[in-house]
Design a protein around this nucleic acid. Sequence first.
DNA 1: ATAGTGAATATTTAATTTATTGTTCATTAT
DNA 2: ATAATGAACAATAAATTAAATATTCACTAT
Lengths: 195, 195
Amino acid sequence: MEIDTVRQQILEAAEARFSVYGYQKTTMAELAGDCTMSAANLYRYFDNKLDIGAALAKQSMLENEALLEQIVNDGMLSASEKLIAFTRKQLHYTYHYFESAPRLAELVEVITAQRPDVIAAHRHNKLTLLKQLLLAGQAAGAFTFDDVDDTSDAIHSATLLFYFPLTMSLYPLAIMEDKVVHVCQLLLKGLSPTV
Amino acid sequence: MEIDTVRQQILEAAEARFSVYGYQKTTMAELAGDCTMSAANLYRYFDNKLDIGAALAKQSMLENEALLEQIVNDGMLSASEKLIAFTRKQLHYTYHYFESAPRLAELVEVITAQRPDVIAAHRHNKLTLLKQLLLAGQAAGAFTFDDVDDTSDAIHSATLLFYFPLTMSLYPLAIMEDKVVHVCQLLLKGLSPTV
DNA sequence: ATAGTGAATATTTAATTTATTGTTCATTAT
DNA sequence: ATAATGAACAATAAATTAAATATTCACTAT
């Protein structure tokens, strides 16, 4: 049996349990039971419970990044459409994640506090994708800007409302959708070459 | 003795205690002692402890709004400078408030959960000021936009990072200052009339 | 060697009890 | 009437105890 196969099996059991009962209420014994092994044996695959949570969070963030990458590389979309789709995708991912599995908010909380590096890596990967998007738009003549790092950072800051977990409860999804459009329209005007 | 004078005295005692010890750790008996009266007598001026907290929060938000209003009405500043100053003022107010009195974050948390109307009113007042700022800029020929409500709402959403209490711990103040400038520059490009 | 376990131990969490504190009210002073 | 209080009561929070749970490890099976 491959070691990574077992690790993946554990992560799947963890995702199922964490989604329904939350991180804290899930015991190592339960995860072990789901994988038909003893609790002690889990420690041959992960150092501790927090590492299981961190691995799960990392995996989920990579999935999200893959979806965003698809948008950046989509040949059918204009640069402007990509920025809106990019922002809307983040909103939907974060929103639906917590709507379908509100208990997962607890995992995010724990990881944010105990493993900030995992969150920082995700932020870095998103900024890289955003830079790609901007540079492609610039090359196509759709965008103009001075500094690509400053600009991607500014867009990331300005769209915080749409991916920050704690802001998901501020407005219902329909209102958030409107806000995505209005914010992006304003940002896009700022990016458009003055005719 | 005026009833409002006593109310104000109570609020001042509450501000001093809440800042240092936090909302929860401050007892009605302590507030009463500070005002040289009995705990029971406090209830002749406020219905309950939460109302004291809400009145204090409301007062502090009104102070903040007054500072923002000064910026909007400042004859020395251009429309663009006003938008940057407006955003930076929110950052400094929120940031320093929690830096100098971190225990007050607890009060904000309680009021947000128990008296969302107080927060909503503040949001509404800020949006009104932002609309004034935008309309003045439009009249002066500095800004162009389609819908003033959509636009002020978009700017408010895009600058969330700079006034949302829970985001104050994301970055140090110096970094936040840079971000204010970069975000506002991008927004201002989006507002500027295409030449 | 590699995969796995049950039992022991050290942390956390939950339940229970005790102490504080928020709130009311009958009563007193002005 | 208005302002204020102390004592009573209900609701919260703190402290304590008991129970679960995470983690380790010596040991077994393959």
